[in-house]
Simulated assay, not measured.
Amino acid sequence: MGIEEQQAAIDAEHGDPEGLPVMRARFEHNGSPRYMLYTMKRLGLDHEHGFHLDFELVSDELEGGVETVEAKLQDGDADLIDIDYISTARERAEGAPIVAFHPYGRTVGGLVAHEDSDIDSLADLRGKDVGVVRRLDKNWILVRAACREAHGFDPDEAATPVEAGSKVELTRLLHDGEVDAVLQFWPIIPEITERGPYEEVLPMSRLVQTLSGTENKLPISTFLTSEEYLAEHGDAARAFADAYRATVDRLVEDDEPWEVVGERLMSYDDPAIVRAVRDGWREMVVRDWDAETLDGMDQLFGSLHAIGGTDALGVDHIPDGMFRLLDE
């Protein structure tokens, strides 16, 4: 389903701000946060918690080397986006006044290959062409780190990463046989594997847990806002966090919202795919965080940097002030 059709469904739920503080959310048209944000709007949980969510979808392409949503936030055209925290660290270290103020989830992907492929594990990536959205994508960094630690080679050198530039193009590369495997994002994998003939060789969430050294579910992706917005509208940010938790509770406990999401935001006509996305989302999402969570995220970053180095992560540390716990 295209951006226009999805946006029409979202716009039908927008309503009037009614004098409430506005938070402009700009999210990718094929990213999983749209399921949660649409549900928040449909159930009126933004107004119930004291703010108005202005929700628009954007493409997943790159603008000037950064994802469209990042460009929107940095250019002052958005107040709320989500990206992985490694990218956040990279952009903040380069001077972007962005802040991660609440977790979203373990938004990693999986290694997907044809069912007849000889790729059965990361060890089989030597000499292969592997499709990635971009070489600084978190999935590729995880694979590089895991291969260095467990298999003694760096796939950035022993394999050939092929940058697709978008998730849609990444799927096309796989379908057209232009690559041997892809590192696709988790919400798209059910459609690929259910319709076949492809299989998920390895979920990246397994690498996250292995490299972090903890059993706690760590959020890879977080919600971001600008330093300016957080300073001027801290109450709205806290209201979003409350509405988010309430929305997560509904999506985890109730199947009805997923039926609506499947009908209005997904292009799948196969209930099995919708259920697979629903179950994957429930496994992925992180409802809240605390200081212990941040320690685990710091440990994962350290593990990735120790193995992949600054060249893989694009940054050598998590900048001070990047994470904000709103209840402090």
Rank of each mutant, 00 (worst) to 15 (best):
A159W: 05
P161L: 09
V162K: 01
V162A: 01
V162F: 02
E163F: 04
E163P: 05
A164L: 00
S166R: 00
S166F: 00
S166H: 00
K167V: 09
V168R: 11
T171A: 10
L173A: 00
L173C: 00
L174I: 04
H175A: 12
H175T: 10
D176E: 13
E178A: 05
V182D: 02
V182Q: 00
V182E: 00
L183F: 02
Q184D: 15
Q184N: 15
Q184F: 11
F185H: 15
F185S: 13
F185N: 13
F185Q: 14
W186P: 04
P187M: 11
P187N: 08
I188R: 03
I189G: 04
I189A: 09
P190N: 05
I192V: 13
I192Y: 04
E194C: 12
R195K: 11
E199H: 15
L202F: 15
L202H: 15
P203K: 11
S205P: 06
S205A: 14
S205R: 13
R206M: 13
R206S: 15
V208I: 12
T210Y: 15
T210I: 12
T210E: 15
L211G: 09
S212L: 06
G213M: 07
G213F: 07
T214L: 03
N216E: 14
K217S: 07
L218I: 08
S221M: 09
S221N: 12
T222S: 13
T222N: 13
F223T: 05
F223P: 07
L224Q: 13
L224C: 10
L224D: 09
T225M: 07
S226G: 10
S226W: 03
E227T: 10
E228T: 10
E228Q: 11
Y229S: 04
L230E: 01
E232R: 08
E232L: 06
E232Q: 09
A236P: 02
A236Q: 02
R238P: 01
R238C: 01
R238L: 01
A239V: 03
A239E: 01
A239Q: 01
F240N: 02
F240P: 05
F240V: 03
A241F: 01
D242W: 04
D242Q: 09
A243E: 06
Y244T: 01
Y244M: 01
Y244R: 00
R245A: 07
A246W: 06
T247Q: 05
D249W: 05
L251T: 07
V252E: 10
V252G: 06
E253C: 05
E253N: 09
D255N: 07
D255S: 08
P257R: 12
V261E: 08
G262D: 10
E263W: 15
E263Y: 14
R264D: 06
R264S: 11
R264W: 03
L265W: 13
L265N: 14
S267Y: 14
Y268A: 12
